[in-house]
């Protein structure tokens, strides 16, 4: 599903965020990216949905060399990739329902599809009672659920999560991980960058460890360190 072939990324000419990274992630895998801040985890995620482009090496997503994708095709790549973040990136002036519906509306999905999909996904993430609330009226965990609903409502092949539990307490984090695990079981490939040792150790999934831009460990059913 995702292949990195000797990928390097250099920011502003001197900071090497990723150095010769090679890894293959199969369809339906759940992969943790671990390592200290600035080790290149977020860069890997940003390269997958082409928010950044690699300076060396090649990246394949769903069989396509994404460096060779023309600019106008990039949005179609991103429709296959859902993203969630530590800070949720919800629109504060829209309700829970509107935030999720927005993701379908802006890719031109017809109204009847929006009306059918949004309530279903909100039920899946357990927020069917809060559809009319604004994000600020929700707890952090609930906000992250909205953001997961938004990322998953279009049924993407891949879900990228950049420290999704970074702002949440351990109990809430467990709930979020259960949700991501459920999504993974539907066949969606999940790649999650995290600092959360206990989560990685409990889940026992594949772990790719980075240090200063280099992959130093790639272990099936691994632990944090």
């Amino acid at each position: 599903m995702i292949t990195f072939e000797n990928v390097s990324k250099i920011y502003k000419g001197h900071v090497e965020a990723l150095h010769g990274a090679t890894a293959t992630i199969e369809k339906g895998e759940f992969v943790f990216l671990v390592g200290p801040s600035g080790s290149g985890k977020s860069t890997m995620l940003r390269l997958i949905n082409r928010e950044e482009t690699a300076d060396r090496g090649r990246i394949f997503v769903a069989g396509k060399d994404i460096a060779r994708l023309s600019t106008w095709r990039v949005p179609y790549l991103r429709r296959n990739i859902g993203c969630i973040f530590q800070d949720y990136k919800l629109l504060t002036n829209k309700t829970v329902y509107e935030n999720v519906a927005f993701a379908l509306e802006v890719i031109g999905r017809p109204r009847h599809v929006v009306k059918a999909q949004v309530p279903a996904i909100l039920e899946l993430v357990g927020l069917d009672s809060k559809t009319r609330n604004l994000p600020e009226e929700l707890s952090g965990g609930e906000q992250q659920r909205v953001s997961i609903a938004r990322a998953f409502v279009n049924r993407p092949l891949i879900l990228l999560a950049d420290e999704p539990t970074g702002n949440l307490d351990p109990a809430t984090s467990v709930g979020i991980m259960r949700l991501l695990d459920r999504i993974n079981r539907t066949g969606t490939t999940v790649v999650m960058a995290t600092h959360d040792r206990s989560i990685v150790d409990t889940m026992q999934r594949r772990v790719i460890e980075l240090d200063e831009g280099t992959i130093i460990r790639d272990q099936a059913r691994g632990v944090y360190s």
Binding site: P75, C83, K89, F102, V106, I107
Partner: peptide
Amino acid sequence: RREIEVMKLVGATNWFI
């Protein structure tokens, strides 16, 4: 800017934005 960011993220086309 936040809406534009989200639109890019979920794959809205440039023309749509």
